[in-house]
Amino acid sequence: MASTNTETGVPGDQGGSGVFPPFDSSSFASQLVWLAITFGLFYLLMSRVALPRISSILEVRSDRIAQDLDEANRLRDESDAAIAAYEQELAEARSRAHAIAQEARDTAKAEVDTKRAGVEADLATKIADAETRIAGIKKKAMGEVGKIAEETTDALVSELLGGKVTKADIASAVKSVS
């Protein structure tokens, strides 16, 4: 508080009382000298110490950032290459899988086809056999029909007429009817 008293003190503690302080030329020399000393020192400190230091900090940082960006670019290229290789391998594997599946499908189909052909051939022979047998049975049966008719006719005639009729007559009669 004591110092503030001197600073805001009564005007006139200097020689030039009554003069507006900024235009009081009695203080000019002192202000110029001290400004030269302090500002000169400040300029030296800035140009020799502070500014080179800050500029080196900024330079190191921008170098580091550039380096990191390069590294990031390199890593991105690497990962891009890895992705491309992966994609290619995936495509290859997919086509290989497709081929394997196709092959499996083809072999399975061929096997089924041969099996079916075998079964069909077997069935055809069986049908043919059956047909010949049926034809044989039919033929035999047809052959016996005439004889049965003759016998039946003979029995009927002899029952009805009581006379004897020659077998030849009966056979011709049956034949003419059938």
Binding site: P11, Q14, F20, P21, S30, Q31, V33, W34, L35, T38
Partner: peptide, 28 residues
């Protein structure tokens, strides 16, 4: 206006020039 007054803290005179260490110099 009194806030702009310059007061001597350490009177100093070189070659007839008053270059006292003042409150202004202190704040410089």
């Amino acid at each position: 206006i009194s806030q702009f007054n310059i007061s001597k803290i350490l009177p100093l005179e070189v070659a007839g020039y008053d270059i006292s260490f003042t409150n202004s110099a202190l704040f410089m």
